[in-house]
Design a protein around this nucleic acid. Structure first.
Lengths: 302, 302
DNA sequence: GCCCTGGTTTGTCCAGGACAAAATCGGAGA
DNA sequence: TCTCCGATTTTGTCCTGGACAAACCAGGGC
């Protein structure tokens, strides 16, 4: 078959490295050095793509590309995270019980078993604690395992899909209607992770907010339009740990200007850990913060 | 505030037009002609972005950019689709009853009302007919309305989110387990629409298949790995109407080579309408085709 | 220890050229 | 009049090689 490799657009999609980056690495570091087809266009081999994905993963952990790309040996596989995850908050130890069991089910691709185990935990803990003590830490653990290469991409996808299902199922069952505040939940165009939004939605809806879930990847102008059309009190955005942190302040400022002044702007998720306070924006460092912010809003507007 | 406009990366994300396209249009047609900042980099105005989005929408309907971009007048708003949607299959007329009502609820941003109406229809029609006679045509109608600018992006997002919820809720309730065939449902990295997958999953699961939903945007190599790890009988991909049709054959061929020979490859969705048959790939033109293909598989492997 | 400063790394942008695939047009033949 | 097929235009994507600012790092002075 005519399978001389992957073109640059495919590699960009599969690795998350832009065409510009792929070309400039080739120029600077001499890797990757793809073959060329009859038209002089780059054709990457599966090996190169594989290595690029490994490099990308290590970069997301804080390594510098210059070292990684140059390093010829397979030292790469033995590297540890340079930016260790923040330690879990105190008191979380007991709650972590059984997380390993759940991780095991994922790694064994036992979708039915995983779904059953999660349902059990939900029944035992109740929705509020289930989200805070099971879903949130489990999501963190899965991310951690992925960073260390101990979990496959498709395993992570299956986990995400099944967990999304569970949360959406419960969110749909919660009373919706004319309560206050009215909260729009969404994310900016580059951000496609939705689990954080779903967790926030569950908690906020449990406390009586009227949640309007718009899914992920909304252009800023559309978020502003939606806020106006729905007369939203709050726009809540989620940024995952994978989000490029330096873009966050600019995005929040741009959106703040587009939103009506009376509409609050909340931002949460692991992607804002390194963001400094901004005027007109409430930063939520963790789910408890979200509950606190909601309580504050409700007190102020009572 | 320092709001001199949007940089080219933002415009790419918000309009779906690549940086290359934005620059080459400027060179060829003289539009858009953004300002430049202190470093000589493009800064697009909100007006330009708005117009670019309108142009993109018309292009998705079959118009040529050359005409649109040059046309200075606001003839644009009055243009009709050049490539009219295929007429609904015969017998669908009666089933379309009440779709306008649902569309109205979406346009009035009445999330609770929409959810209630959909639940009612589900109860009345049963899951199988609900998917075929309500969700599928409604999705088509929403796409149509969006093409004609009669529905906002955020309205479409809300519709999608609520409908996803409903389908996932029901899929989660279906019996999973050790049935056959084992079907992996996912989409390629460029394709992020998931509704088609969820509809297919519902139908296949109802007919006794063991569905493994991996969500959207899976790299091809990962799809192959997942198929092996799960020992899947079938890999089913979905391509939405917005998917660039010329990429479909290449992608399917590449994946076909990566998959174990014993694993069937199915492709469906509006994005494959213009794809010609490929060896080793089953093209599904509509949900009934999927049911037929499943029945065929089950007969052959009985 | 901590803060400032100068050097290095790194991603993204730019210009302008090239080319193939797709869309369109035009003319020959049924 | 309609259909088909080859020529022509349109259009998206890739190419090279240069530039630069923001992020990062290291070392010196307090």
């Amino acid at each position: 078959m005519n399978n001389p490799g992957f073109d640059i657009a495919t590699v960009e999609r599969d690795t998350g490295l832009s065409k510009d980056v792929l070309r400039v690495w080739e120029r600077r570091y001499g890797f990757p050095l793809p073959e060329r087809d009859a038209h002089g266009e780059r054709r990457y081999s599966a090996d190169q793509v594989e290595r690029l994905r490994l490099i990308k993963r290590l970069m997301d952990q804080g390594h510098r590309p210059g070292k990684l790309v140059a390093a010829p040996l397979e030292t790469l596989t033995g590297l540890s995270p340079r930016r260790p995850r923040p330690a879990p908050p105190a008191g979380a130890e007991t709650a972590a019980d059984g997380l390993d069991e759940l991780l095991d089910l994922i790694r064994r691709h036992d979708a039915a078993g995983y779904a059953r185990a999660m349902q059990q935990r939900l029944a035992r803990q109740g929705l509020l604690r289930f989200v805070q003590d099971t879903v949130a830490p489990l999501t963190g653990r899965v991310g951690e395992e992925w960073e260390n290469g101990r979990i496959e991409v498709f395993e992570e996808h299956l986990f995400t899909e099944l967990t999304k299902r569970l949360l959406r199922q419960n969110n749909a069952a919660l009373p919706a209607g004319r309560q206050r505040p009215r909260v729009i939940l969404t994310s900016v165009p580059e951000e496609q992770h939705v689990l954080g939004l779903l967790m926030a939605e569950t908690l906020l809806a449990l406390e009586g907010a009227d949640c309007i879930p718009l899914g992920t990847q909304m252009p800023l102008l559309e978020i502003a339009r939606a806020a106006e059309a729905h007369r939203a009190d709050i726009v809540a955005l989620s940024f995952s740990v994978a989000f490029p942190g330096r873009r966050v302040p600019t995005l929040l400022q741009q959106l703040r200007e587009l939103l009506p002044p009376g509409t609050a702007l909340w931002a949460g998720g692991a992607g804002i850990q390194r963001t400094s306070p901004l005027p007109g924006v409430t930063l939520l460092h963790g789910l408890p913060d979200a509950l606190q912010a909601l309580a504050d809003w409700q007190r102020e507007h009572a």
